[in-house]
Design a protein around this nucleic acid. Structure first.
Length: 469
RNA sequence: GUCCCCAUCGUCUAGAGGCCUAGGACUUCGCCCUUUCAAGGCGACAACACGGGUUCGAAUCCCGUUGGGGACGCCA
C-alpha cells in the first residue's frame, strides 16, 4: 500500500474523551504500521463551543499518551475561505442551491411529517426555486442525487451504503455564512490528501452524505474505517454524565500512560491472546482488519490490572518521576528524590495498582509526623507488646550495620526471649509504629529504608504512647 | 418512528466449516507461598441469544426472530 495519510480531527469542546483518545491511537498506529503519516486537525468551526483550554487538553492528552502527529495542528477555523469557496463552486456547478426556508417553517413541516408517521428529510421546497444570491437570508443545500447507492467498502464494517433517495438535501452553509461540518471535513480531507478516514462508528451513517459531497465536488473519496464505539456499563455510548470518560481524569487517578494506551488499544482490537502491548508493538502490530464491529465496554478493572503490570515493569527513573507529583500531593509539601525513595519505590511496585495508591503507601517515608490509623493502632499497639517492643528498641539501638539481615536477627532474638512470640505479633506493632498503618513492604526492608534514626524515633514514640496514651 | 449496524463466559477477546468435550485475559472464589499487604504459582465457576435452513459436519455460511446500539441539527 502506498503510505497512508490518516488524520485525527477532534473538536475542542470539553475535556479529552477516551473514545477520542482511542480514535487518535488507531489513526496513529495505522499510520505507523504502514509507514504513513497522521495529520492533526482541530475541528473548531463551532465557535460557541470551542475553547482554548479544550484544545490544550487535546495536545496535553496526545503528548501524555505519546501519540505524535506528523502534520498540523491545523485549525478548521483557519480554513473558512476554502470551505466558502467550495460552497460557491458547488453553487456555480448547480450541485447546490439556496434555500430560504426558515427554521420555524422547517420545524413545522418536520413535526407534521413525523406526526403522519413518516421519516423526515428536507422536502426540497427550494430545490428548483432558483433563489439567487440576493434572496435574503438563506442557507445553501446540497442537491442530492435522486437515487442510486451512496456506498463504500468500509475497512471495518465491509460493504456499506445507503440509497441517496433516503437522504435529504443537507445544509452546507448556514444562513450566517458559516460552512457546516460535513462540508468542512470533506474539503479538508481532500485538501490534506487524507487516504484513510478512521473514526468512531457514530459517523457510519454520516458517511453516505459525505460521499455525496465528494461526488458533487468531483473528488475521489478516501477509504473509510469506522471503529466500534466504546460504551459504558449500561451498554450505551459513553456519556460524560454517567461514565468516567476524561483522559485527564484517569491520569489524575494515577494511571500510567502506557497502561492507558494498552487498555485503549485492546478495546475493539486484538492480536491473538496477547494482552500487553508496548507502544512499539502497537505501531508494528496494529491493523484495521483485526478491528471489531461490535461496541466494547470500558472495564475499569482491566485498566487497574494493566496499570499494575506497567507499574511493575516501568524503568525506575520514570516511575519515580511519575510518582513524585502524587507523593507531594499526599505529603502536602515538596518532595525530593533520594536513594531511600528509590528503594521504597522498588518495594512498592508490586503493591500498587495506581500512583495514587503508591503515594499513599510511600507517604510515611517523606513526612515527619505520621498519624496512626486508628483501627491499626487499636489492634496492634496493645500494652502486652510493650516489653518485647522495649527490648527490640534497645537491641536496635545497638544494631550495626542497619541492614535487613541484621534487623531480622534482632527480631529473632526478641521473639526467642519473649516466649517464642510469633513474627506477626512483633512485626505488626512495629509496622504501625513506623508507617502508621498495617500494610507495608516486608518489615525489615521497610525499617532499612526508613533508616535507623527515624525508625528508632518512631518506635520510641509508639512506646511513649503505650506508656502514657 | 425511519434508516443503518451489532450479537462467544459478568467484561475484553481467540475462533475465518471438522484442530472446539470453545482457548486466553480481567473480575470472583478456593489452595499454595507468607511477619502485613501485594506479587507469584496452582485450580474452580463462567459463554457460542433463539429458531429455521445449507452441509457428511456449523460458534463459524444463509434467512428469520429477539435483544442491544448508532444516526436521523442552520452541532461536530
Amino acid at each position: 500500500m502506498t503510505p497512508p495519510r490518516t488524520r485525527f480531527a477532534p473538536s475542542p469542546t470539553g475535556f479529552m474523551h477516551i473514545g477520542n483518545a482511542r480514535t487518535a491511537l488507531f489513526n496513529w498506529a495505522f499510520a505507523r504500521r504502514h509507514g504513513g503519516i497522521m495529520v492533526l486537525r482541530i475541528e473548531d468551526t463551532d465557535e460557541a463551543r470551542s475553547t482554548a483550554e479544550s484544545e490544550a487538553a487535546i495536545f496535553d492528552g496526545l503528548g501524555w499518551l505519546a501519540i505524535e502527529w506528523d502534520e498540523g495542528p491545523f485549525r478548521q477555523s483557519e480554513r473558512r475561505d476554502r470551505h466558502r469557496a467550495a460552497v460557491e463552486e458547488l453553487l456555480a456547478k448547480d450541485r447546490a442551491y439556496r434555500c430560504v426556508c426558515t427554521r420555524e417553517e422547517l420545524e413545522a413541516r418536520k413535526q407534521a411529517t413525523i406526526a403522519a408517521g413518516h421519516k423526515w428529510v428536507y422536502d426540497g421546497r427550494c430545490r428548483d426555486a432558483n433563489h439567487g444570491a440576493g434572496a435574503g437570508a438563506h442557507t445553501v443545500r446540497l442537491r442530492m442525487p435522486q437515487g442510486g447507492l451512496l456506498g463504500w467498502d468500509d475497512l471495518v464494517f465491509g460493504a456499506s451504503g445507503q440509497d441517496a433517495s433516503e437522504i435529504g438535501d443537507m445544509i452546507l452553509r448556514r444562513s450566517d455564512g458559516a460552512p457546516l461540518y460535513n462540508l468542512a471535513v470533506v474539503v479538508d480531507d481532500v485538501d490534506m490528501h487524507i487516504s484513510h478516514v478512521i473514526r468512531g462508528a457514530d459517523h457510519h451513517s454520516n458517511t453516505p452524505l459525505q460521499l455525496a459531497i465528494y461526488r458533487a465536488l468531483g473528488c475521489e473519496p478516501p477509504r473509510f474505517a469506522h471503529v466500534p464505539l466504546i460504551v459504558g456499563k449500561d451498554g450505551k455510548k459513553l456519556s460524560k454524565r454517567r461514565d468516567p470518560v476524561s483522559l485527564q481524569g484517569f491520569r489524575a487517578e494515577g494511571v500510567l500512560p502506557g497502561a492507558m494506551r494498552n487498555w485503549l488499544v485492546r478495546l475493539g482490537w486484538s492480536h491473538g491472546d496477547q494482552e500487553i502491548f508496548s507502544r512499539e508493538e502497537i505501531a508494528r502490530l496494529f491493523d484495521l482488519d483485526a478491528v471489531h464491529r461490535s461496541a466494547a465496554q470500558a472495564d475499569a478493572q482491566k485498566l487497574a490490572w494493566l496499570n499494575q503490570q506497567y507499574i511493575k515493569t516501568l524503568a525506575r527513573d520514570e516511575l519515580v518521576a511519575a510518582l513524585l507529583p502524587f507523593l507531594e500531593q499526599a505529603a502536602g509539601h515538596p518532595v525530593r528524590r533520594n536513594a531511600e525513595l528509590d528503594a521504597l519505590v522498588e518495594l512498592l511496585r508490586e503493591r500498587s495498582r495506581s500512583l495514587v495508591e503508591m503515594a499513599q503507601l510511600a507517604r510515611f517515608l517523606v513526612v515527619d509526623e505520621i498519624a496512626y490509623d486508628a483501627k491499626a493502632a487499636a489492634k496492634h499497639l496493645r500494652p502486652e507488646i510493650r516489653p518485647a517492643l522495649e527490648d527490640l528498641h534497645a537491641r536496635l539501638e545497638a544494631l550495626e550495620p542497619w541492614s535487613p539481615a541484621g534487623l531480622e536477627a534482632s527480631f529473632e532474638e526478641v521473639r526467642a526471649v519473649h516466649g517464642g512470640l510469633a513474627m506477626g505479633k512483633l512485626a505488626q506493632p512495629v509496622r504501625v509504629a513506623i508507617t502508621g498503618g498495617e500494610v507495608s513492604p516486608p518489615i525489615f526492608d521497610t525499617l532499612a529504608v526508613l533508616g535507623k534514626t527515624r525508625s528508632l524515633a518512631r518506635i520510641a514514640e509508639a512506646l511513649h504512647e503505650l506508656r502514657h496514651g
